[in-house]
Design a protein around this nucleic acid. Structure first.
Lengths: 131, 131
DNA sequence: CAGGATCCTGGCTGATACTG
DNA sequence: CAGTATCAGCCAGGATCCTG
């Protein structure tokens, strides 16, 4: 079974199939650092240390792990120059660039409703935690 | 500091600001069940038990928790009917419906590249784990 | 029916140190 | 420079039992 039981011949709500598809994306880029890396690599080839500086707060370990996952899913291309000291460049693949475009709608949504959400949150908290 | 150091007057890469915005969205709907619930509630009012059945695999606990979070962020409206036994209906708010629309681009991306990604993954695994 | 309370686990994550 | 290795902590999420 994958994606909460929405598999082969399982009878499911049509809407939940869409939810399932969205989850596929989130499973890949939902990690804490994936988007940041993807965005950085979408501007052109970036080196390991450049990323480390741009993604403020990321550890070497998480940078490596996230890069590996993105590479595995075909979202990043890794090019190694056999020089000394070593040089490695990461580049967003075409499908990563497409993904990047698809994210625009999300950022637009977030920007439009940022304050609304903050207000809702404040109202909820006022009403609930001090009952 | 919020969103990996991208705050007020911090000098940061413009691209990372966008990454930061995307993260805002993911922090709200990136949970394992959020999208499924949002999708279900977008079709019209749904009751607790209906959700429990539709979201196959979810536990009562996570259903409750996720509903609370979505309500807190103003994505769901919760209506209680003071009957016995109790009846509670959850409805997607306008901004949730807008979000739902924004997700279409993502599902489309996932569908277009599902097989490409699977292939990349297979290739990567073939090449790496049995070295 | 629609939850709340508790306990517990696995995986993601961070910190630190070492290396080809 | 671009990693790898190891240890330790946290928290989302699951299992189970209880209730207005």
């Amino acid at each position: 079974m994958e994606c909460a039981g929405v598999a082969s011949d399982t009878p499911f709500t049509p809407g939940q199939a869409r939810a399932c598809t969205v989850r596929e994306v989130l499973d890949r880029v939902g990690g804490k650092w994936s988007i940041g890396i993807l965005v950085a690599a979408s501007q052109g080839p970036v080196r390991f240390t450049e990323l480390e500086r741009q993604i403020e707060g990321i550890s070497r370990r998480m940078l490596t792990l996230t890069l590996r996952n993105l590479e595995r899913d075909g979202l990043l291309h890794r090019r190694v120059y056999p020089t000394v000291p070593p040089k490695v460049e990461y580049t967003a693949t075409p499908i990563a660039l497409e993904l990047y475009e698809s994210l625009v709608a999300l950022t637009s949504w977030a920007e439009r409703h940022r304050s609304t959400i903050a207000a809702a949150r404040a109202a909820y908290d006022r009403e609930h935690d001090r009952a």
